[in-house]
Design a protein around this nucleic acid. Sequence first.
DNA 1: GTCTATATGGCGATAGAC
DNA 2: GTCTATCGCCATATAGAC
Lengths: 202, 202
Amino acid sequence: MVKKTLSTEEKILEAAKTIFHRKGFEGARMQEIADEARINKALLHYYFRTKENLFDDVFKAALRDIFTKLFTTVDANVPMEEKLKNLINEYIGFLQKNSYIPGFILAEINQNPGKIIEIFKSAPVSPSMLFERLRESVQDESLEKTDFRELFINILALCIFPIIARPMLQHILEFSDKEYDLFIEKRKKELPVFIMNAIRKK
Amino acid sequence: MVKKTLSTEEKILEAAKTIFHRKGFEGARMQEIADEARINKALLHYYFRTKENLFDDVFKAALRDIFTKLFTTVDANVPMEEKLKNLINEYIGFLQKNSYIPGFILAEINQNPGKIIEIFKSAPVSPSMLFERLRESVQDESLEKTDFRELFINILALCIFPIIARPMLQHILEFSDKEYDLFIEKRKKELPVFIMNAIRKK
DNA sequence: GTCTATATGGCGATAGAC
DNA sequence: GTCTATCGCCATATAGAC
C-alpha cells in the first residue's frame, strides 16, 4: 500500500516500517521489505548499506512518533481532569492507528537492551518537560499527594497494555475483532474516571 | 548455570528457556542454546528434532507458569481488598523473579500472532474460573459497579508494564538498577491503594 | 546417547551491466 | 539509480562413527 509519488527512499522507509514493526529486527527479511516497497533488494543496500542502518532509522522514527504524541497531548495548560481526558483519548487513538509501535519498541528493548538504549540516548527525547507539566498538574489541592512518576507509569501502562497484549487478551476474553474495538472505545471514556477516582481525595 | 543432576533433556529445556526468553525465536541460535546447556548442538536435534519444537515447549511452559501463578493468587476466598493486596504482591514478586516471561510472550505474540494463538489454543488455559472469582469479588456493595474484565486488564497492565518496559522507563526516569528495584518494592504497596481508590464508592 | 563432520538452504551483501 | 546474478557466510539439520 505504497503511493507511487513517494521517492524510492521514502518507499523503502515506509516498507521497512511495516515489516520491522510486524517482525522485529531478527524476523524481518530484506527481501520482504523490498517486495513491500515494490523494488529490488539491491536497492535497499544502495540506499541504506546495511539492515542495521535501515532498522535504526525506523526505530528512531518510532521513538520520535510516540514521544511527539505524548508531548503534544500532555503539554497543555488545562486542569488535571480535562488534561487527563484529552491525553487518554488522543493517546489511545494514536496507539490504535499505530498499534505496532509500542509492541515493536518493547520487543526490541527486551531482546537487545544495550543496542536499543544507545539509540535512545542518540534520540532527541528529553521527557523532563513532560514530567514538569505532570508534576504541576498533580499539585492540585483536591488530589491525593501522588508520586508523579508513579502516575506517569500508571497512565502509560493502562493505555498501552490493552494494545500490545491485544491478541492474547482478545483470545482470553473471547472477543471478536469488532467487540475488542468497541471495548477499547468504551475504555477511552472509563479510564479517565478510573484514574481520577484513584487520585482524588476522599 | 545448570545443575549437573539434571537429565540432558531437562538441561536443554532450561538452556532453551534462558536463551529464548532473552532473544526470542528468531534471535536465538541453536549453538547458543547448546553452549548454555554444555552439550553438543546435534543433541538438541536428537531430542527435539527442530528449533520450532523446542520453542513451542518453552513457550507453553511460559504460558503455564504465568497462568498457574495468576490462578493460585486470585483464587482465594477472602475479601476484595485483601485479595488484591495478596494478588499484586505475589504476582509482581513472581514477575520480578521471572522478568523475561511477559516480555517474551508479548514479543512473540506481536511478531507471529497466528502461530502463537495456535499454541494458546492447545495450552490447558481456561481463564473462566479466574474471571468467576473476580466477578464475585466485585459484587461487593461498597464498590463501584465495575466491569470485571476491565478491572482484570487494569490490574494486569499495572503489574506487568513496569517490568517489561523496565529498560525504557529506567532510562527515562534516570534510575539506577537499585533505585528501580526500590521503586518496584514501593509499588507493591501503593498499587493496591491506587486500585481500591479507583473502584471504591465515594 | 553423544560426538565430529558435513550437507543444505537461506540471507545479507556486493559486482557489474545498463 | 536500478537491475540481474552471484558470493560468502552462517544457521538448521542430518549422517554416521563410537
